[in-house]
Design a protein around this nucleic acid. Structure first.
Lengths: 125, 125
DNA sequence: TTCTTGATTAAACAATCGTTTAAGTGTTGA
DNA sequence: TCAACACTTAAACGATTGTTTAATCAAGAA
C-alpha cells in the first residue's frame, strides 16, 4: 500500500505510522535550535548551575549585555529559562521543567562524548 | 577573586571552572544545530528506524531529492548518519555511535514532552 | 557506446540569525 | 525630581541557512 519509488524489504508503513507529526517535530526542533547556538548553549549551561543577573552573565560568558539580553529572551520564549526581578536586577535561571532537565542532561552527556577528556572514546561494540 | 559587576552569594568560581571549554561547547552546539531544523530532524528520526535510499527518504518526508541530499550531507558531516552504496542507490541510516543514540533518545523523550498525546503533562513537583 | 535511473553539485534567491550601536524603560537612592 | 544603574528594545548590518532549478556525476542496462 506504500507508494514509494523503490520497494525494499522494509516495512515503511509501520515506521511512518509512528513518525511524529508536524507539530511534534517542530516543537522538538525549536528546543534543539535554541541550543544549537554556542552562545545560548553556554548561557543555558551556566543557568543550569546558578541563578545570575544579566550583567554577571554577560561578564561570565564575555558578551555585551544587549547580546545576552537578546539570547535570554529567546531562551525564555522557548520555556527553557525563567526570570525574576529583585530591585534593579533581573535574575535568570533554568526553568524547573522536564524539558529543561532533559536538555541539560543531554548536554552534559554529549559534552563528554564529543570532546572526551580523561576517558578515551570507547567504541563499545 | 572573581571579577564580576555584582557580588551575590554564589560561588561563581567553582561553576566557571566546570564550564565546558570553547571546543566542547562548539561540538555539542554543532550536533544540536543539525537537529534544530525540522527537515533534518524528521530525516534523522526516520533513519533511526530504517535504512533507506534517497528517493524513498524524499518521498517519505515529502521533499525534493536535492533538498534531501543536501540535508543528508550535513547530517553525515556531523557524524550522525552513515551511507552505503548498493548498485545505483545510496542507502542512509543513523550512525551506530553513542552520539547518535543519545540524540535519538533525547528526541523521543522531548517528543513526548513538548507535545503530549495520551499522557497529560504532569508537572511533577 | 548510448540511454536510463539514482544521486549529487552549483548557482541563485529569499529568509533567518547574531551582533553591534544607540535609544529607550524601569527601578533605586540622593 | 533628578541622576545613576540594570536591563531591554530598535534599527542596521553582515553572515549563514534552506530551498529551488538546472546541470553534472555515477552505475547499470540496452
Amino acid at each position: 500500500m506504500t507508494n514509494l519509488p523503490h520497494e525494499h524489504g522494509q516495512n515503511e508503513e509501520v515506521i511512518l505510522a509512528q513518525l511524529p507529526d508536524e507539530e511534534e517535530i517542530s516543537g522538538v526542533a525549536e528546543a534543539m535550535k535554541q541550543l544549537g547556538d554556542p552562545s545560548r548553549l553556554r548561557i543555558f549551561w551556566l543557568l543550569c548551575h546558578c541563578e545570575e543577573c544579566v550583567l554577571n552573565i554577560a561578564a561570565l560568558v564575555n558578551m555585551s549585555s544587549p547580546a545576552v539580553s537578546h539570547h535570554l529572551r529567546l531562551l525564555k520564549n522557548s520555556g527553557l529559562i525563567v526570570s525574576r526581578r529583585s530591585g534593579k536586577e533581573m535574575y535568570y535561571k533554568t526553568a524547573d521543567t522536564e524539558l529543561a532537565q532533559v536538555l541539560h542532561h543531554t548536554i552534559e552527556t554529549l559534552g563528554r562524548i564529543t570532546c572526551p577528556r580523561e576517558t578515551p572514546p570507547q567504541n563499545k561494540k
